[in-house]
């Protein structure tokens, strides 16, 4: 089914999504990939506050290319999600509701998604030029020293994704 959703995600919105749905997202998403995840977890271990409140938010596993003058962002497609698996359950426990990436997730992440009522979307890998057009605003809000791996707050409009794993744990990659 095709759906158009305004972020942030609520429990009701998450419940309405099923593996296989084509979804167009509008609203705020945060970019974070390997190094930013590692640093967020270290921050939590030190009992310090994260750069943004995870409640209801969506993280896009992304490290873009630099923007040219006049561009909002450079090429901006998804990176492989499984590298974030080790860090993900802790973030889901803090209220993270959505993740955008590509590729498989671990059983631990899927269990935590079911427990915390969250959804995992895939964007088309290797379509970063096309996807960048749907990102209308972008600013680095934390970890600037990480370069492409910094955390960005981005406003996306009609950003196309597919629900790969829904909150019931149904996994589109595991189809018969």
């Amino acid at each position: 089914m095709e759906k158009h959703i305004t972020l942030p995600l609520t429990n009701e919105l998450v419940s309405s999504l099923q593996a296989g749905d084509m979804v167009y997202l509008t609203g705020i998403v945060y970019s974070a990939r390997d190094a930013a995840h590692k640093r967020m977890i270290e921050t939590l271990e030190k009992k310090e506050a994260l750069p943004f409140d995870l409640k209801g938010q969506t993280i896009y596993y992304l490290g873009p290319t630099p923007a040219r003058e006049g561009q909002v962002i450079g090429s901006a497609g998804p990176t492989t999600a499984s590298r974030m698996d080790k860090y993900t359950p802790a973030l889901l426990e803090l209220g993270l509701k959505g993740m955008i990436g590509k590729g498989k997730r671990s059983p631990q992440v899927i269990d935590s998604m079911k427990k915390n009522h969250a959804v995992y979307f895939a964007a088309v890998g290797g379509a970063g030029a096309l996807l960048s057009r749907q990102i209308r605003k972008s600013r680095v809000i934390a970890y600037e020293d990480l370069g492409t791996e910094a955390i960005r707050e981005m406003y996306v409009e009609e950003f196309p994704v597919i629900v790969v794993i829904d909150a019931q744990g149904t996994d589109l990659y595991q189809r018969p």
């Binding site: 970063g128 030029a129 057009r133």
Partner: peptide, 21 residues
Amino acid sequence: GILEENLKVAKEEQIPICQDT
């Protein structure tokens, strides 16, 4: 189809094909 369109956009608008260059 999306991948073909992506190649076109990359060339015309000078955005790298993929962010992982």
